[in-house]
Amino acid sequence: MSRRYVVGYFEEDGRLIRAVKELRDQGWAVADCFTPYPVPGLDEAMGLEHSYLGWVAFVAAMVGAFGMLALELFVAVYAWPVNIGGRPNASIPAFIPPFFEAGVLNCALTTVGALLAVCKLYPGREVPADLPRTTDDRFAVVLDADQAPGAADRITAALKRVGALEVTEQTPREAL
């Protein structure tokens, strides 16, 4: 049997953050939040770690740039060293623009690819749960209903206390 979740809905991001903080203070594990826009401070409140995608971007940029430089040198110095306008084979200054562009391109594509992979986003992906209006004007916090015996009710109560408009129990199609 799939897991049940308690979902609390809010109208304002401020209340959502307060709710997350309180719930976590009370010892509840917050599974996730769903918001129509990135809410500043929410990740801190949820205790999420910083994204590591910055490192992916850096490495990708370096690979792209130096890969291109290597190709340029291979082509101009080793594979096809012809006299072009009397310029040296390794015309390094002239090789900089491709070096830069390749770095940027690889960085952008790899980083976005990594984002999609990390978030498991792809065309045709099923939305795991039906959380009405969270992409519109609602803010939802989701907690595991079975994280402790009787947790569902206590969480519901806590949510109501911090001002949730509505609290429901749901069984999503897959684990969040």
């Binding site: 096809w80 012809v82 006299n83 072009i84 306008g85 009397g86 310029r87 002239a94």
Partner: peptide, 20 residues
């Protein structure tokens, strides 16, 4: 038949080069 031919450096496909 320039020694340092300005036409050559700008050709993207190396269609014009200087011979030996």
């Amino acid at each position: 038949q320039c020694g340092d031919a300005p036409c050559e450096t700008v050709c993207p496909v190396d269609a014009t080069t200087t011979s030996e």
